[in-house]
């Protein structure tokens, strides 16, 4: 029995192929629908603002946020999931991003030099000390702001639009996803050369 559990843990600890992740996400979508809810992570930002009393400043935050407690539990669980994965389910080569050799090569153009198989999951500029550098501050504080503002403006993020919305054949979500890619490509090709220049 113990032997089996160790084998199971080792099996889960391998890097997951895309289709396993796709199946898991679809399962999560289904289970939330079955519970009578809809999968959407960024709605939590609005809930958190409302819980902090933002309703005093805008009617957008005057709603029954307590009824959204289930969604806060999902992100709480996601934090536990991150903890468990990083500490107990890391793969044999550590918490590494197995990106293509082409990507490793093009990262050098940004001044991010790694050898293949040693690319971390998260780049070095995600640290407390980099908040005191201009680039770190722009990426962490600016990126957070754009994501919080854009997700609420568009009415959803990757989970709400790209997964839930497209699954329910919503044209609105398709437009939003096209927007995600317009923004993403603008950032990658036009702004990164300045940010990492």
């Amino acid at each position: 029995m113990l032997e089996f559990l160790i084998q199971l843990k080792d099996f889960i600890s391998q890097p997951w192929p895309w289709w396993v992740a796709g199946m898991m996400i679809a399962f999560i979508l289904f289970i939330l629908l079955f519970f009578g809810k809809e999968f959407g992570i960024s709605a939590n930002f609005r809930v958190m603002c409302a819980a902090e009393g933002a309703g005093e400043y805008s009617d957008f935050f005057k709603f029954d946020w307590q009824s959204q407690g289930w969604n806060l539990m999902v992100v709480l669980g996601a934090m536990f999931g991150g903890y468990i994965s990083a500490h107990y389910l890391s793969s044999a080569d550590g918490n590494v991003a197995h990106i293509s050799s082409e990507t490793v090569e093009s990262l050098k153009g940004l001044g991010l030099t790694y050898s293949e198989g040693e690319v971390p999951l998260v780049p070095e500029f995600y640290s407390w000390s980099s908040l005191f550098t201009l680039r770190g501050l722009i990426i962490i504080a600016g990126g957070g702001f754009l994501i919080g503002f854009g997700a609420r403006y568009a009415g959803g993020c990757t989970s709400g639009h790209a997964i839930s919305g497209l699954s329910a054949l919503q044209i609105s979500s398709l437009i939003a996803v096209i927007g995600f890619f317009i923004g993403g490509l603008l950032m990658t090709y036009l702004i990164f050369p300045f940010l990492f220049g």
Binding site: S42, L146, F149, G150, R152, G179, G183, L185, L195
Partner: peptide
């Protein structure tokens, strides 16, 4: 517009809300 703003943040920060 909202999607494009989100996309700018997504690519820069490399993370979405989840």
């Amino acid at each position: 517009i909202g999607g494009t703003i989100f996309g700018l943040g997504w690519a820069m920060a490399g993370v979405c809300p989840g």
